[in-house]
Amino acid sequence: MLQQSPQLVLAGLTVGAGYALVALGIHIILRATRVINFAQGEFVIVGGLLAYTCVTVLHANVWLALAGATLAGFALGLFYERAVLRPAARGGELTATIATIGTVYVLLYGHALIWGSLPQPLPFFSGGERDAKWVIGGVEVAAQQVWVLALLALALLATYLFFDRTTYGKAIRAAANNPLGARLVGIDVDRARAVSVAIAVALAAYGGSIIGPITLVGGAAGVAIGIKGFVGAIVGGLESPVGCAAGGLLVGVIEKLLEGQFGYGVADPVVYSLLLAMLLVRPQGLFGVRGVARD
């Protein structure tokens, strides 16, 4: 166990990258619309499958596929906000929650209709049938793992810069914090919400495309990715973007360590129990501020 643990931590960070992007997306949508999007995990799978189609049908290289899937995710997010989230949010929180659960069904079984129910492999980003591997300090590091972590860092940085450094990003945050005030200063709040949701879905699609070569994409995996992403958001703090990203990575590491020690069947229920435990003990999360988590 102890000798394995650096290896498991690395594996955990790799799957955790997917959870981190899901958690961040949930955070962005929650902040913009006050709705928790249960379908975020399915968007990861749909994104990965879109990248798969770019590669196999359009014969694009992996980088174009990654860009294509991310853009397609953005468009899908715009549609999703307009067709589902916006009308559902008018009916109140329960209605919106139920509508996002309905979306899980549509996406989960919908992508099986298009791509089949078996998970599909994405090509490695470094090219080749087999991924390059190095042994560093006794830990075997695959090139794709390095790609995943680097591309995760890139996405997090881009998200941060957009929301914190650009005028439009700040306008979106203003619209989320105080819709009425934002309207008064001329911000199109509906559009800001739509763009927020689109960014969140694009992040999910991007996540599916970068972890796809390792985890394969498709099947019923989206449900677990979505819930573990939410666990990450709760662990880190649903109201804190940094917390969401860190929480997602942490959940990935915890999951892999548990799997290494007790096997696959035990890890999942324990991770889900972590959700209940966190909600009970520290609902604002590790990075959150008390008093804001339970509005």
Binding site: I36, G265, L276
Partner: peptide, 28 residues
Amino acid sequence: FIALRFRGHYLAMATLAFGLICVGVFRE
């Protein structure tokens, strides 16, 4: 008793986790 602490979407997640834990226990 646990659910009392949550509203809306938090509640949905907490109950979902409960269901998943049950299946996990049955399977293991």
